[in-house]
Design a protein around this nucleic acid. Structure first.
Lengths: 337, 337
DNA sequence: TTGTAAGCGTTATCAG
DNA sequence: CTGATAACGCTTACAA
């Protein structure tokens, strides 16, 4: 059990070649056929694996990607998982840190990752601004902002079409005749929450529908109780909305529990569009209409972009891409024209 | 932006001391007061941080902990997050890999982590056996099994009292007069699922209550639809149970949706005990009785154990600890004496 | 194609 | 207490 890993030196000894030749082979250089065979034999026999730590010291690479997320929640987790799936294949490992929605921790953990000399960074920022980053990051490494842009900082950014998809969802309700449409939003300091609310507002504006302040509730993304409370408030309104759009998964869960508790009939008494969890939508009756974000695709997109940047491809820098979320219509909404 | 990090050499130059002295200082050795001040000044001035890669090459440490989990789900995520919280403070970083409940991937990613030369491993195993580990892990590093033991392998193991807590939950229902008690279990190849079922069986046995096969349903842990379906099956039974115990969070969610859909009155028509999500329990009406696992505590326990092992403290090896989950009684269960 | 040797930033040994 | 020096395992000119 206490086996010392073989080094290039051992391979050199075994084959009678120099370590330079072995190294060259390992890095894809040309070697005589017979030496190649010999080396490969040695590698097998000695169970050799390059020491990436040592290599990293020379090449100034750690083969490590730092990922900074607000919390370990299903949306981010799914992204991280698919990101990691791509990255691991190419030998990169991923260090994920959550900052628990905490401004101080957000900077500290960014600093931590930087000090760990990660080769690149993936950031889902909340409070972080360009200046914070410039203060912490001194080496020139690829940085990708995900889900939310980083204010005052030029870098690759992968977003979702929050505004557009929110517009479409609300428009759909309008077309079905709804005029009293509630929305449960996330905190307005978060980019995605702003965008989703703006889509709601724009749709109202475009169709000449009055926006009522009482129909707009603000919850918290990572707190299903806030979705529950917001929905209760909407329902307790003297003139309750005929439709409600809930703009994130955890809040949707809470909202549904509220509806059940109040024994509201969907879609007869209330139309509802939720967010982000296909599995739940499948089993809720009547089947839940949803905005679905392409989480896997986000992860893959970020990973592939990162790999290109790590290879030095900068021609399309800074890239700003919006991936499409979809409005999935099921039976939880109804025409009340 | 392209600033080259300062090295010990730079500090040596700045102070006029030798790199050996600087290194000694950095590692807590004794240095003359005036030199100490000088060095500290230099460190500040040059914004120096030790290069852990280089240090790692010498010391054979990466300051990295590998964590292998089945999937990114709330239970494991919470553990990982609290584990990481402790570990980061001491300078360790954490590489988390999920294997998506896939046997092949489970071995591959263990191998990946090992090759990354992590200083220690935290494993939540599913298919992994002692032989697999022995085949992959050659160096002598601390390994901690979490939530589930590793078959045929001697290592530290941190578990939850699944059997006991399940017994207590079911016993509670029995004491309230229930004789027809349904259970929705996880897959029987998973340790925790076996234990939870066994607790159910033992309670029945101890109280001389007949166990009906039809009241035992098997779902999947990471699939809420399986909880939904299982509950529907239980309810469709010609003689449905008067109480149901659901043994994991995702399945509990599905079960609740089924109950709502069927418009079953809780606890009048059905008593129910769920699993693992306090937040949800708070907002479901009537308030949901629950088995609550100490996820944060698990993470912290594992982290602290790991830190001790990494310091070489092996006196209590192999440690096998069971942490206490609690049965939290709320209003979703009723005496039908 | 292959080998020699310097160097990446540390730590550790051993004199001084 | 301090400093010179040899490692750690690898890559990379440069020379052979």
């Amino acid at each position: 059990m206490v086996e010392i890993p073989a080094t290039i030196k051992d391979i050199a000894k075994y084959t009678g070649l120099s370590i330079a030749t072995i190294s060259k082979y390992l890095n894809g250089g040309n070697v005589l056929e017979k030496n190649r065979i010999l080396i490969e034999e040695a590698i097998k026999a000695l169970d050799f694996e390059v020491n990436e730590i040592a290599r990293g010291l020379r090449t100034n690479k750690t083969m490590t990607i730092g990922v900074l997320i607000p919390v370990f929640e299903v949306f981010f987790n799914t992204i991280v998982s698919s990101l990691e799936n791509v990255l691991l294949e190419t030998g990169y490992s991923v260090i994920v840190c959550d900052y628990r929605d905490n401004e101080k921790l957000e900077k500290e953990r960014l600093d931590f990752l930087y000090k760990k000399r990660v080769d690149a960074l993936v950031i889902v920022p909340t409070y972080l601004k360009g200046n914070d980053i410039r203060k912490i990051i001194k080496r020139d490494i690829p940085i990708v902002a995900v889900d939310r842009p980083i204010e005052d900082f030029e870098c690759d950014t992968i977003l979702v079409n929050n505004f557009e998809v929110s517009y479409k969802a609300v428009e759909r309700l309008i077309i079905l005749g709804h005029r009293k449409i509630g929305i449960i939003c996330g905190p307005q300091n978060i980019y995605t929450a702003q965008e989703r609310l703006n889509g709601y507002l724009k749709a109202h504006n475009d169709y000449g529908i009055t926006v009522y302040k009482d129909y707009i509730k603000f919850g918290e993304y990572h707190n299903m109780e806030s979705g529950y409370k917001s929905m209760i408030e909407l329902l307790n309104n003297p003139e309750p909305p005929s439709a409600v759009f809930v703009t994130n998964y955890e809040m949707t869960l809470g909202a549904i529990i509220a509806i059940n508790e109040k024994d509201i009939k969907v879609p007869d008494e209330l139309s509802i569009i939720g967010f982000d969890n296909l599995e739940m939508a499948k089993i809720v009756k009547p089947s839940l209409s949803l905005v679905v974000q392409p989480m896997e695709e986000i992860g893959e997109t970020v990973a592939n972009l990162l790999l290109r940047r790590l290879k030095g491809e900068k021609n399309d820098f800074p890239l700003r891409k919006k991936l499409d979320a979809q409005v999935l219509i099921r039976s939880s909404i109804k025409n009340i024209g």
